[in-house]
Design a protein around this nucleic acid. Structure first.
Length: 523
RNA sequence: GCAGCUGUAGCUCAGUUGGUUAGAGCGCCUGACUGUGGAUCAGGAGGCCGGUGGUUCGAGUCCACCCAGCUGUACCA
């Protein structure tokens, strides 16, 4: 016998086990739920004709975009490090930029337009929040080499289909569409200087959170948040603010006018939807900007295509407040939001961001090639969506049943027990030998914790009779809750634990599994 | 990054105006049960009271700084 380890010396400080923030551990239930989600998404993407392609988690930093690490803050936003040859490498922070690199590298051999999908972990070194992680999974699809609005429309429809396939009912999500060209055009017409454009876009982006007043404040002097912190505004002139706000108000007012019937009085088709009027409205308000008109044409194209496929306003709609990434989108942009409130652990509503987003990025591939390569795509934030669904109880967080546990009654007969386990496994039944040191009662507790449907027992009595006992833990649990009803009780007790001849072990276990809908495949 | 709030057992939290040996519930372990989990009862383990420094005869409690967490905000490919 080996010597027992001594009491740990308390003077020596233990290493503290702690998980870095913004990174999640995931248990069996969560893993199983994620696997089901991924399979569902994959099925939809395949149905749309996309094919699988994967790229590595690490890329050359310059291939990823603007986040070239500088000496002072090499890990700002993106996790980066230097290779042996002094070249900077980074963990990918989305799946789009790596795909652009892949397409550029294999441009000659790929079919074009090129339709592909992939999922994987992406990494962002930033402050975590609810549904916001430093490592998270995205599921991405892209069409490279098509400038047709049909490619964009398809992304929107596929996004809607995927949400529904994931069990989010129609009306509980919405695909919002906008165009960067429209935004640029509006800013042109307002005469916004280059230096203020980002601030203005951010102000528009916050329309849904802070409302018309909040956005107006951000365009002007600035805004105090609820902790008293102050955010500086863009300090636009009255005219500029007016122009931007007339755009920002368009969505709100369009739906108001729909309700008040103003448009119906003008003689438009009552069956048409608000997007139609919104485009119309914006077209007349910003007709002096060629850029805006171009963007509106694109939106109208997408609008016509999705409506032709019977995707109505409840699923896909135009929302002028959608801005998305400031870096590389060049045309239509999309965003999928959940439309119901999500309550946190304390019951207060938690704000999750969008669960999927994308858009047209005509400049990304051309960075590598010096020729125009139009592309559009979108990504689902699988981790965030899973977190949102888990908050809603819409995801099955119930742990899966565990294996059949063969208990060890007599340590000298380990081989016999191992043999039983082997027989069960040969019959494709999940089974394991109890490997711990606990006594019999402890073994049952263990099996209970593993959520085992049943345990197999063979003590001296059974062995003498050439039998094994199968104990149904699920029925046993019900038995414990049962009222005293004597007949039913006895009946159930007999079902819950019974002995069978050794050679009918597999059959008996199968019977118990079938009882709880856990059938195993026939061998 | 900025602002506000919060740090006491594995978890959820008590802890009087500063006062001796810091508590409860749940969970965990052991036993009542040398062949039966979920029920009951009894017992037990588990804490540098987030850290450092200060005020004080005396600090979980007051002060300063630091760290961490939460919320908001900024940034967000």
């Amino acid at each position: 016998m080996a010597e027992r380890p001594k009491e740990p010396n308390k003077e020596i400080s233990k290493l503290k086990a702690r998980r870095p923030r913004g990174l999640a551990d995931r248990g069996p239930a969560e893993i199983a739920a994620t696997r089901r989600m991924l399979e569902t998404i994959r099925e939809v993407y395949e149905r749309y004709g996309f094919e699988a392609v994967e790229t590595p988690a690490i890329e050359h930093t310059d291939a990823l975009g603007k986040f070239l690490p500088d000496q002072d803050r090499p890990n700002e936003g993106v996790f980066s490090f230097q290779d042996d040859d002094a070249q900077w490498l980074s963990l990918r922070y989305d799946l789009t930029a790596p795909l652009a690199r892949y397409v550029a590298e294999h441009f000659e051999t790929l079919p074009k337009p090129y339709r592909s999908y992939r999922f994987g972990w992406v990494f962002r070194n930033e402050k975590p929040g609810p549904g916001r992680f430093r490592a998270f999974m995205q599921f991405d699809a892209d069409t490279v080499g098509s400038s047709s609005p049909a490619a964009d429309a398809e992304m929107c429809m596929m996004a809607a289909d995927t949400m529904e396939a994931l069990g989010i009912p129609r009306g509980s999500y919405v695909v919002k569409v906008n165009s960067r060209k429209v935004l640029d055009g509006v800013m042109d017409s307002a005469g916004i200087s280059e230096s203020k454009r980002l601030t203005v876009l951010r102000a528009i982006d916050k329309l849904d959170r802070f409302g018309v007043q909040g956005t107006e404040a951000l365009l002007g002097k600035g805004r105090h948040d609820e902790s008293g912190d102050f955010t500086r505004g863009a300090e636009l002139t009255d005219f500029q603010t007016d122009r931007i706000m007339s755009y920002a108000r368009a969505a709100v007012e369009t739906s108001h006018r729909m309700q008040s019937g103003t448009y119906l009085a003008k003689g438009f088709n009552a069956a048409a939807d608000q997007d139609y009027y919104l485009i119309d409205e914006l077209r007349s308000s910003f007709s002096e900007s060629q850029f805006a008109l171009e963007g509106l044409d694109e939106l109208e194209g997408i609008h016509a295509l999705v409506r032709a496929s019977s995707y109505e306003t409840d699923r896909i709609r135009i929302d002028p407040s959608i801005v998305r990434g400031l870096e590389y989108y060049t045309g239509p942009v999309f965003e999928v939001d959940l439309t119901f409130p999500i309550a946190g652990d304390d019951g207060k509503p938690v704000r999750f961001g969008s669960v999927a987003a994308g858009g047209r990025y005509d400049g990304l591939v051309s960075r590598f090639r010096g020729e125009a390569v139009p592309a559009t795509g979108f990504s689902i934030g699988v981790s965030r969506l899973a977190a949102a669904l888990a908050h809603l109880g819409k995801i099955d967080t119930k742990p899966e049943p565990g294996p059949v546990v063969v208990t060890v009654f007599d340590q000298d007969r380990l081989a016999d027990y191992q043999n039983m386990v082997a027989k069960l496994r040969a019959a494709r039944i999940r089974a394991e030998l109890y490997l711990g040191a606990g006594r019999f009662a402890a073994q049952l507790k263990y099996a209970d914790k593993r959520r085992s449907p049943c345990v197999v027992i063979q003590g001296g009595d059974e062995k003498a009779r050439g039998e094994v006992t199968v104990k149904d833990l699920i029925l046993g649990a019900e038995l414990a809750k049962l009222e005293k009803g004597r007949e039913a009780h006895l009946q159930k007790q007999a079902e819950a634990q019974f002995a069978v001849p050794e050679d009918r072990l597999v059959e008996a276990v199968r019977k118990v599994l079938a009882r709880h809908g856990l059938g195993s495949p026939p061998s």
